[in-house]
Design a protein around this nucleic acid. Structure first.
Lengths: 217, 217
DNA sequence: TTCATTTTTTATCATTTGTAAAATTTTCCC
DNA sequence: GGGAAAATTTTACAAATGATAAAAAATGAA
């Protein structure tokens, strides 16, 4: 079943839609810390143990603000379970520019890189289970352990590749194409996150997104 | 002399414009390899010497294509002198998504991170003097030298912060605001690069950019 | 369930941006 | 300098998106 160029393949849309609305089946996913760390970049067992010594597990409810734009953040988080959004405030409204879910890393880039106040707030969109790591400890490990330093390098490089790809996608795809791309690449996102946030993430108004979704083919 | 919120401060625009057109004064800038490496992140002398052993100097003329999208790139470059653009091809046209100048690093992120073909072509917009470094050598140094590994990590982190900022800027600033931002932050760019490329970089058509530039205040 | 609240869709009109083509200006080469 | 080519601006019109308001649908709590 392929759906490459704009041709949708859902055999019976009405049925599918009803089913989704009725049950909103959440596939229960969860990633433990070993899976998360290894997915970023394989680490030797000893280095992984070293790293894990600095990591603690924390839980927060839906609606909690994990990171605030107006302070320098001293922790980074790995998402074991749940979904979050990063948003920035402007004069008129707030703009969602990132979603994180199981396996993703929550980090204020500006705090982390430049130790300055960032622009991002992180809001939990579901009850979340998180792994917490003090950046201070991580920095120390970077200086002491070449394995962890390269793991950190890989993390930044991969995030960079992803971010660059999004930037370019935004530059030469229409809002419609970007929505379909998201739908194909992250179908669960549309079910787990309200459309207002999705619209903001795509850089359009909620009304525009509704128009796109309403189009028949 | 400040020009923060949309209020232009050029005292006599007609005069300034004529002057610029007549002389198009290029401030001759150039960065040597030590300056470039240190600007990314300070390195100990010994590590810097080690890294420099793998770096050679090369020159190419304006118009040269330094990197091609259809091949896995095996080099990275530091720009000593000159200006370049990265562009991706689409069905209809090509889209400029990055400019690099003195001190910047030219790298195909996808080749570098995933060892896959990238989407970017790099074209030299002026005659360029470059420092060349084989990624293969760099990878080896990352595994052997923690100093260099952390230098590479810092590089990726900084690029990530910059790219993320651009992505967000695109999301909540209008084309007009982004043009003015660019004009303020990189005034030389507008003089060294043709406006068609700038328009593409801003994510608008050349016609739109002309309209923005034509506005009086 | 029922009701209040939140989210999503629809409709209308204004604004922005794009497309195409022509006019103008600049650049470059002889 | 002169003339061809390239780059930029302008114009007119079309298409896409935004703003606003209101209707419809979904959600959540009692």
């Amino acid at each position: 079943m392929k759906s490459d160029n704009g041709s949708p393949v859902i055999p019976n849309e009405a049925y599918t839609k009803t089913r989704v609305t009725a049950f909103k089946q959440h596939i229960v996913r969860s990633m433990n810390i070993d899976q998360i760390l290894n997915a970023i970049h394989p680490l030797s067992d000893t280095s992984k143990q070293t790293l894990k010594k600095s990591i603690a597990e924390v839980n927060y409810p839906k609606g909690h603000i994990l990171l605030r734009a107006d302070k320098i953040e001293t922790n980074i988080y790995f998402i074991k379970k749940g979904i979050v959004r990063a948003f920035a405030n402007t004069d008129h409204n707030e703009i969602t520019f990132w979603f994180g879910k199981e396996g993703d890393t929550v980090i204020s880039m500006k705090s982390y890189v430049a130790r300055q106040k960032g622009y991002e707030n992180i809001e939990l969109l579901e009850d979340c289970e998180l792994y917490e790591l003090k950046t201070e400890n991580l920095q120390k490990l970077f200086d002491e352990n070449i394995d962890i330093a390269n793991w950190g390098r890989k993390f930044a490089e991969q995030e960079l590749a992803k971010t660059e790809e999004r930037l370019i996608s935004r530059q030469f795809r229409t809002a419609k194409e970007r929505y379909r791309e998201l739908l194909k690449g992250n179908p669960d996102l549309i079910q787990r996150v309200q459309l207002g946030h999705i619209a903001s993430y795509l850089g359009i108004t909620q009304v525009s997104l509704s128009r796109i979704r309403a189009e028949k083919n």
